[in-house]
């Protein structure tokens, strides 16, 4: 779990865009951990949201993830 969390944070920090889709995050994690299942990546991402390191960005119809503090903030 900690390895997956680190891979997610690496992806989030180095991504050109501040918001990204779950599937892109999953693909990036699978480069390093090819056996990781989508459900495991989701659990790691959820844990990071609960630790307030990742945030959800929702338009109402679709949802993206982002690194807390990067890009758009809650005040906009």
């Amino acid at each position: 779990m900690d390895d997956l969390k680190k891979a997610i944070l690496d992806f989030a920090e180095n991504n050109k865009k501040s918001k990204f889709y779950f599937s892109d995050m999953e693909k990036a994690v699978k480069v390093e951990f090819p056996d990781a299942k989508a459900r495991d990546v989701k659990k790691a991402a959820t844990a990071l949201v609960n630790e307030e390191k990742l945030i959800y960005f929702s338009t109402g119809s679709s949802t993206m993830y982002g690194l807390k503090g990067r890009g758009q903030t809650e005040d906009h």
């Binding site: 959820t46 949201v49 609960n50 945030i55 959800y56 960005f57 929702s58 338009t59 109402g60 949802t63 982002g66 758009q72 903030t73 809650e74 906009h76």
Partner: peptide, 20 residues
């Protein structure tokens, strides 16, 4: 309306739709 944003309740990724 500005569409979407980083609002929600803690731990939930849905149920709240940001509008500004």
């Amino acid at each position: 309306w500005k569409h979407g944003g980083i609002v929600g309740v803690f731990g939930y990724g849905g149920g709240v739709i940001g509008r500004y």
